[in-house]
Write a protein that binds this DNA or RNA. Structure first.
Lengths: 239, 239
DNA sequence: AGCGCCATCTAACAAATGTTAATGCCCGCC
DNA sequence: GGCGGGCATTAACATTTGTTAGATGGCGCT
């Protein structure tokens, strides 16, 4: 059941059986969320952290004028609110972008891990650090990449992250986001989002239909995006 | 000497004398950097993490077309590359935006802290989590706030962060950034950056001259920015 | 004092992006 | 099979943002 989490963490460093067991013990119960449901509400103080077993979720903030901005997309194997373990108060919401199967890890058990399992603690810490690295890459994309490059970068990132947890199908992956939702990822209007997707299609590097993205020319897509996966820390080494 | 760091960490939870001592022991040597110098270069694998004692630093990435984007601003008391302790490879550079006095913490000593001092480990982890929270707020600002609101938000954030480490002077603080540098923070052209600063000035909420920002109307500034400091985790509670 | 450099600021125009509105299509529901 | 709603797409137009170029002014250096 926790296979995605193991794959995710083991991506960065070896994960012992004892550590896997500790993680399994930290999990209390599981739950399903329907598309559009809030998995964690903004302003709350959760006492557990949520692991995505299956589905796509997203962190978001809403402004007074009704504008919404997603600050991350979370794939299977991701802890969506591990940061709340120490941050305590959620300053943003987390919503299911597709039917989501999740599992909850009690903060008391996570705390016990920090007291007794230093290496596993570092791996969990690292997980949140990769989160931060992704945030930084998004900031760069929003500030200094062309919109087409931004979208291309997102496709590259999602493909690699989904590949790690075995959710890709050849050069395709399922992306259950409407163009309006995608617009709230890139910070664009829906109309312009449509233009940008069209532009990327026209270049011929991706096929995008029925919520399925197929990468036709990985090399050129990467080039357009200036995608360098270093920030995802995909090398396995002692941490 | 480490007063800023103590203030920074103690902002979130009590810091014991023993923990302060552990931090002090982790520090190996100090150094000064001139404005514009790289404190940490992109692509390197540092064996120590850098603490800002005094000055302003920034994380940045450079794109092929020469565009630069800052992904964070770092004030005294901030570890600029604590994440490199586990991320290992720097995927971005860190540059001194003003003369900087810094101190280095050996990764081996940080590792020892994770093995022996769980509470202090959580505080350091938390420090990187706040980093992430700031990143998310920047993403929201870049994607969905007006440029004026974005700038106002940045001013609010910097003011609060500088206040914590006692670098404000009444309602003023020193901000040693040229408009071109600020443009690389917000992701704008220099010309438009100038327009946006002008707009904020015209509203009358700030005075901005000689690299000194004075907040004339904190309440209204906060309103324009929709600034809610929750994400900075300024409440002191057990972590 | 004179020079040159750099940062700020402005103007005029070009390009990117947002807004409003309309069309067509698919798909679930009655 | 018809109906209605959501989504993708496009058009026309408004607004924001970028580009290029130049003017101004402070400030260190000689």
């Amino acid at each position: 059941m926790l296979e995605s989490l193991y794959l995710n963490l083991a991506q960065h460093d070896a994960l012992s059986d004892a550590e896997k067991a500790l993680l399994a013990e930290a999990m209390t119960f599981e739950r399903h969320f329907a598309t559009g449901q809030d998995i964690v509400a903004s302003g709350t103080r959760p006492t557990y952290s949520t692991l995505i077993l299956d589905g796509l979720a997203a962190r978001y903030k809403v402004l007074e004028n009704g504008g919404r901005q997603f600050t991350s997309l979370q794939v299977p194997g991701d802890f969506v609110d591990l940061h709340a373990f120490l941050l305590k108060t959620m300053d943003h919401g987390i919503v299911a972008m597709s039917p989501c199967h999740v599992m909850f890890a009690d903060h008391s058990r996570l705390r016990a891990i920090t007291e007794e399992a230093p290496h596993l603690t570092r791996l969990l810490w690292l997980d949140t650090l990769v989160d931060g690295a992704i945030h930084r890459e998004w900031i760069v994309a929003m500030g200094r990449r062309s919109k087409t490059a931004h979208l291309a970068h997102l496709v590259c990132e999602l493909f690699v992250r989904l590949q790690v947890v075995q959710r890709t199908n050849g050069m395709s992956f399922h992306l259950p986001l409407s163009q309006a939702e995608l617009a709230d990822v890139l910070g664009l209007s829906v109309v312009h989002m449509n233009r940008v997707i069209g532009a990327l299609r026209k270049v011929g590097v991706v096929n995008w239909a029925n919520h399925t993205v197929t990468i036709l020319d990985w090399h050129r897509l990467q080039e357009i995006a200036e995608f360098d996966p270093t920030y995802l820390s995909l090398t396995r080494e002692p941490r």
